[in-house]
């Protein structure tokens, strides 16, 4: 698939001197769901804001379907929909009016049928005459999505769409995102939940300290992120790993008092059951077993360290 959004050497330094984006380059493929993962302050929102025109880039360029977002901003912005992280809505306006306003603002003629279909799709039709102040947090977020979809964008940016919402809403949101993708909309969402990226993304980009550390197909990244360690504390320390266990690539720890087994949770077979029976066969008795998974934070740290 060709890239619908091309970010080249994008740099953003704020007036206070903080460099939020460091020469970011990124291609977003048409029709994909790209999840941008990163801790707070990584530069996710700055990147989205710069693509959408809210923040002015210090240097570098962004093109949306071949239109430069600064020089040819009208054509570029007409193709983009943005759902911000904060719930920003005029409290006393009716839902339907605020959605109609968004459509007009993006240069589209009034189209009540389209507005109705967007509101129905987001289960907001029954609330169309409610003031936004009367809605629940989840509903308000849906209104923001409806506003972003009002002008029929081809690229939709969702900035932390499920931050602070309940599980049901999160699943609803994922369903909505998949439906939009089926309609041909390219979706970029930022999140710091790995499960979210895992659930819906085609590709995952990792961003930290203003740098894109990697962009990878979800499946291959999940294999890397899905590695887990099991620590096997032994009753008696051993001087060397028995030959019969050589296939497990065990590492001795605590001067032979413990063995470390690394395995892949996303693999079809983790090999744990077989390892236990082979340990017994080798005459090793276990005192305790602990498992741990490297957190996303740790992976970020590793990635940053590797990048230096």
């Amino acid at each position: 698939m060709p890239d619908i959004v091309s970010v080249r050497d994008l740099d953003k330094t704020y007036a206070g001197g903080f460099r939020a984006l460091k020469s970011v380059s990124l291609g977003i493929r048409q029709g994909e769901i790209l999840a941008l993962l990163g801790p707070n302050g990584a530069g996710k929102t700055t990147l989205i804001s710069t693509i959408c025109g809210i923040t002015t880039p210090t240097s570098g360029s962004v093109e949306v379907a071949g239109h430069d977002v600064v020089r040819d901003y009208r054509a570029a912005r007409q193709l983009i929909g943005l759902v911000p992280q904060e719930i920003n809505l005029e409290p006393f306006e009716k839902v339907i009016n605020t959605v109609r306003f968004s459509r007009g603002l993006f240069g589209r003629r009034r189209d009540d049928a389209h507005v109705e279909s967007v509101l129905r799709q987001l289960s907001l039709w029954d609330k169309r005459d409610s003031k936004t102040v009367e809605l629940s947090g989840g509903m308000k977020r849906r209104v923001l999505i409806a506003k972003a979809l009002a002008h029929e964008p081809r690229v939709l940016f969702l900035d932390e769409p499920t931050a602070g919402v309940d599980v049901d809403f999160r699943r609803d949101m994922w369903e909505t995102v998949r439906r939009l993708q089926a309609d041909g909309v390219t979706i970029i969402l930022t999140t710091h939940y790995i499960e979210e990226a895992e659930a819906i993304a085609d590709r995952i980009g990792v961003i930290a300290r203003g740098e894109i550390l990697l962009v990878e197909e979800k499946d291959s990244l999940m294999r890397r992120l899905g590695r887990k360690e099991m620590r096997l504390d032994l009753h008696e320390p051993i001087a060397a790993v028995p030959d019969s266990l050589s296939g497990y690539k065990l590492q001795r720890s605590d001067e032979g008092g413990a063995l470390i087994y690394t395995y892949d949770t996303s693999a079809e077979r983790t090999g744990i059951a077989r390892l236990f029976s082979d340990l017994t066969a080798a005459g090793l008795r276990l005192r305790d077993v602990q498992t741990s998974q490297s957190s996303l934070e740790e992976i970020f740290v590793d990635l940053v360290r590797d990048g230096q």
Partner: peptide, 12 residues
């Protein structure tokens, strides 16, 4: 209230 984001990201 923060709704200015929409104005700034619109083709206007």
């Amino acid at each position: 209230i923060g709704t200015i984001y929409e104005l700034l990201s619109a083709p206007v």
